[in-house]
Simulated assay, not measured.
Amino acid sequence: MTAPPSAYKIVDIPEPYADVIKRHGVEGKFVEGEESPWVPFGDNAAIRHLAFDVRNNIYSNILWIKSPGVIGTHRHRGTVVMLCLEGSVRYLEYDWVAGPGDFIYETPGETHTLVTDHPDGVKLFGWLQGPIEFYDENANFLETLDVWWYINHYESYCREHNIPINKQLYL
Rank of each mutant, 00 (worst) to 15 (best):
M1A: 15
A3Q: 13
P5G: 15
S6P: 10
A7M: 12
V11C: 05
P14Q: 01
P14T: 02
P14L: 00
A18T: 08
V20I: 15
G25N: 05
G28T: 13
F30W: 07
V31F: 04
E35K: 15
V39C: 14
D43P: 06
R48V: 00
F52S: 13
N57H: 07
I62K: 10
V70I: 14
H74P: 05
H76N: 11
H76S: 05
H76D: 04
G78E: 10
C84M: 06
C84F: 08
E86R: 14
V89C: 08
D95L: 11
G99K: 00
P100V: 02
G101T: 00
F103A: 04
I104N: 13
E106G: 11
G109V: 05
G109R: 02
G109M: 02
G109I: 03
E110P: 00
H112N: 09
T113Y: 02
P119E: 15
G126K: 03
L128R: 11
I132H: 03
Y135H: 09
E137V: 04
E137C: 00
A139D: 15
E143D: 04
D146K: 06
W149I: 03
W149R: 12
Y150R: 03
I151V: 10
I151T: 11
Y154P: 03
Y154V: 06
S156M: 08
R159H: 13
N162M: 04
I163Y: 00
I165N: 06
L171E: 10
L171Y: 13
